[in-house]
Write a protein that binds this DNA or RNA. Sequence first.
DNA 1: CCAAACCATGGACCGTGGTCTATTGTTTTG
DNA 2: CAAAACAATAGACCACGGTCCATGGTTTGG
Lengths: 120, 120
Amino acid sequence: MKIGELSEKSGLSRDTIRLYEKNGLISSSASQSETNNYRDYSDDVLLQLQFVSSAREAGISIADLRELMEAFFDSCDPSQAENVIVAKTTELKERIVQIENVIAFLDEALVKVREALGDD
Amino acid sequence: MKIGELSEKSGLSRDTIRLYEKNGLISSSASQSETNNYRDYSDDVLLQLQFVSSAREAGISIADLRELMEAFFDSCDPSQAENVIVAKTTELKERIVQIENVIAFLDEALVKVREALGDD
DNA sequence: CCAAACCATGGACCGTGGTCTATTGTTTTG
DNA sequence: CAAAACAATAGACCACGGTCCATGGTTTGG
């Protein structure tokens, strides 16, 4: 499919898709036509973009995603791919713990605020 | 305490502390001295900075933190503070779910990679 | 056929978060 | 006292992630 359709289906702008491609998160092939230089995206790319998109929302950097996508699709060395995936998973779990700490802090604050409300 | 000591204790650079102060995450008072315009930071500010620091690591934006810190310390209206805290907590929990989705995806990928490794 | 819609490329631009530098003034310390 | 360390301020600079714009070419629909 062409970038417009991909943009439509993924919910990402053309610019963003091109940015991701330039950064090695996805790849495309030249279209069949001899007369243009349009890019052709496979259905797989749509799935990849959906993953990338949710990962970006989760705060994972493009650089990190590049590493992951390369590990999945370009790596000729599965054990290296494994290393990357395990490392990123560990990182993400740490991140969850950090966020949970912040939530715990907020919960405590909430208790105090509600006490203040009760003291009206 | 002066900014150097605060920097030392918080592990944040002077520049970063000033940036946070400019953005309303912390506040300070003028020093006692008549001859300088140094800022004076209370011990509470150190605690606040420790929270801010870990929250920043967890990916919470300065703008969001400003809202939270204002809700804690500046709000004359506890019920509004409560709203902000609840909203941010909800947001953070959604974020955790997103990260967990990414981890789940990575786990699946890991299984496949390990199958590939097993097929050696 | 021709206008509208699409595509690629490159560069400018923006907000965010932070660092670095220069300048000037103050305090501390040997 | 003098040098070193510290402080405040302003502005430049940086990376990141993304959007917007201009240009020029291609395809599509009426």
